[in-house]
């Protein structure tokens, strides 16, 4: 048993948790952008509250906490594995393709995490009526949250390339 619980095992464990929470996060991000947002105009007015009062708040809960769990497990994983600083500095001058590639993924993921907690969630609270706001403020909040969500969808494509490519498709 003692041989099983090594630092290699803990690193694996955090990588496993990091992948699961990452799927929880990006899965919901893609649900919002590929399913919910394009469907909203087609839903009859009297049925919209099913989305805005029940489904969207629950999806946003798992979305934002998935983002938090992903960055926390990712930073622990990088620190424990010894490549945190190399990745933050994009491996410049190191000629280390792993650190450079994962570093791009980490920076993109960090921008996306910022968008979730600073731009999307505070504005979505106004849009969904979780906090009160004037109608023009709600309109502006919907625009900011929507654009930040689209930026994250765009960034998720290179981010996932970098995360998977660092180990499985290095130069």
């Amino acid at each position: 048993m003692q041989e099983l619980v090594t630092s290699t095992w803990w690193i694996f464990c955090f990588r496993w948790l990091h992948i699961m929470s990452g799927i929880m996060w990006i899965g919901h991000l893609w649900y919002f952008n590929f399913v919910q947002t394009p469907s909203m105009p087609k839903i009859p007015q009297e049925q919209k509250p099913a989305i805005t009062k029940f489904i969207a708040p629950a999806a946003l809960f798992w979305f934002r906490w998935g983002a938090m769990a992903t960055i926390v497990t990712g930073l622990i994983l990088a620190g424990w594995s010894g490549f945190l600083w190399g990745a933050i500095t994009l491996g410049i001058g190191e000629h280390n393709s792993h650190d450079t590639t994962i570093g791009f993924g980490m920076w993109l993921g960090t921008i996306m995490w910022f968008n979730v907690w600073v731009l999307i969630w505070p504005n979505q609270k106004k849009v969904l009526g979780i906090v009160s706001a004037q109608p023009d403020e709600v309109k502006r909040a919907a625009r900011v949250a929507g654009l930040a969500s689209r930026v994250n969808t765009m960034l998720s494509i290179p981010m996932l390339y970098a995360m998977a490519g660092a180990t499985h498709f290095s130069f």
């Binding site: 952008n33 590929f34 394009p38 994009l90 491996g91 410049i92 000629h95 280390n96 393709s97 450079t100 590639t101 791009f104 654009l147 689209r150 930026v151 969808t153 765009m154 960034l155 998720s156 494509i157 290179p158 390339y161 970098a162 130069f171």
Partner: peptide
């Protein structure tokens, strides 16, 4: 001019374009 991020298709295309740019940058650094 319309914001390309208002279109889901254009958002995805931009994501792939950014991926190519990123790969070129990685290649230049490594």
């Amino acid at each position: 001019m319309k914001n390309p991020l208002d279109s889901l298709q254009q958002t995805v295309v931009l994501g792939f374009v950014l991926t190519v740019v990123m790969v070129l940058l990685i290649h230049a650094i490594v």
